[in-house]
Amino acid sequence: MSEFFHQYFDFHIMGAHFSEVLEGFFKNLLLFAIVVVLALVWGLVLALIRQLPGKKLMPLRGLTIAYIDVLRAIPLLIIILLISGGVPYLEFIPKDIRIPNWFGQPDPFWFGVLALTLVYGAYMAEVYRAGIEAVQSGQMEAARSLGMSHSQAMRHVIVPQAVTKIPAPMLNEMISLLKDTTLVSVVALGESVLVGREVLAETFNSSAVMLAGLMFLVITLPAARLVDKLIARNQSKIARGSHIEVG
């Protein structure tokens, strides 16, 4: 047993490399912070396109559904490899954009931002969709019967209600996203897991990788508790709601 602890929980190694790993972890957090904003917006755009009415927009809806399905069906790792390996070849894009080096972050960082946004946009679009579909159809009918356009009804009536129904699943996606920022290490972004593995290659000891894991725990465990609380709150809300309906 002691060998196991030495291999994964050598506090001396953890202490010696703490600041490096933490610096890497800040990179995970920065990546997360940027992607979460972009993916929330992109996911909403996708979900709204998917809800557009009319026969004329069928191709656009079909394209959106295909996008959402395909991006959720391909391993994120492959998307990251594809984008970081492929985008630089697109020579019609100016070099500063195709090999981005902005705000002091190297191109693997921005490729990670793009890949995670594209994929998590698709996941979040599905969460939004569940929220939109959970809004009673009478709400859209009421809004439309008052003369509101589809987009006015979406904006003022449907979406504000939809977002109150999805904080728990959305937070789950965010937890997954934070963890998945580590995958960008495959294109040599110096985030916490890569730093931990560097230490492993140097010391033949996994404690620095474990340390990265512990840093994630500090954030994700309370978040998971919060998800449970939100679910419980939502259920009591539903219970109250049905009581009103009956009473």
Partner: peptide, 17 residues
């Protein structure tokens, strides 16, 4: 930039990153 595998590094070279 430390890549997990050698071919990844060569790929990055070819891609120009």
């Amino acid at each position: 930039r430390p890549y997990p595998e050698g071919p990844d590094a060569v790929n990055a070279l070819k891609a120009g990153t």
